[in-house]
Simulated scan of single mutants.
Amino acid sequence: MTAILENTAPVRVSTRRDFWRGVRRVLRRKPSRIAGVVILALFALMAIFGPMVYPSPLPRDDDALYAAPSLAHPFGTDFEGTDVLALVVTGARYVILTGVATAVIAVALGTALGLVAGFHRGRWDSVLMRLTDLQLTIPGLPLLLVLTTIWKFDSPLEMGLVLGLLGWGGVARAVRSQTLSLRERGFIEAARGLGLSTRHIVIRELLPGMAPYIAMNVLIAVTGAIYAQVGLFFLGVLPFDSNNWGVMLNLAVFGGGALTSTAALPYLLAPLLAILLLTLGIVLIVDAMDEIFNPRLRED
Rank of each mutant, 00 (worst) to 15 (best):
A3W: 06
E6P: 08
A9T: 11
V11M: 06
R12Y: 03
S14I: 04
T15R: 00
R16K: 13
R17C: 08
D18I: 03
G22W: 03
L27I: 09
K30A: 03
A35W: 09
A41I: 09
F43A: 06
F49G: 04
F49Q: 08
F49T: 04
P55Q: 14
P57C: 03
L58V: 13
A64Q: 04
L65D: 01
Y66L: 10
A68C: 05
A72C: 09
F75T: 00
F79G: 02
T82D: 00
D83H: 07
D83K: 02
V84T: 06
L85C: 11
V88M: 04
G91E: 02
R93P: 13
Y94G: 14
Y94I: 15
V95Y: 10
V95Q: 00
I96S: 05
L97V: 14
L97Q: 09
T98G: 10
T102K: 05
A106S: 15
G118L: 00
H120E: 08
R121T: 05
G122V: 07
G122W: 00
V127P: 08
D133T: 14
D133I: 15
Q135M: 13
L136Q: 10
P139R: 07
L143N: 14
T148Y: 15
T148F: 14
W151P: 05
K152I: 15
P156K: 00
M159R: 06
L165S: 02
A174L: 15
E184D: 15
E189V: 03
E189R: 11
V202N: 01
R204V: 02
L206M: 10
T223N: 12
A228I: 01
L235V: 15
V237Y: 13
L238F: 12
L238Q: 08
N243E: 11
W245C: 00
G246Y: 05
N250M: 13
V253Q: 09
F254Q: 08
A258T: 07
P266E: 04
A270C: 07
L273T: 11
L273R: 02
L276F: 07
I285R: 12
A288C: 07
M289T: 01
F293S: 02
N294W: 09
R296V: 05
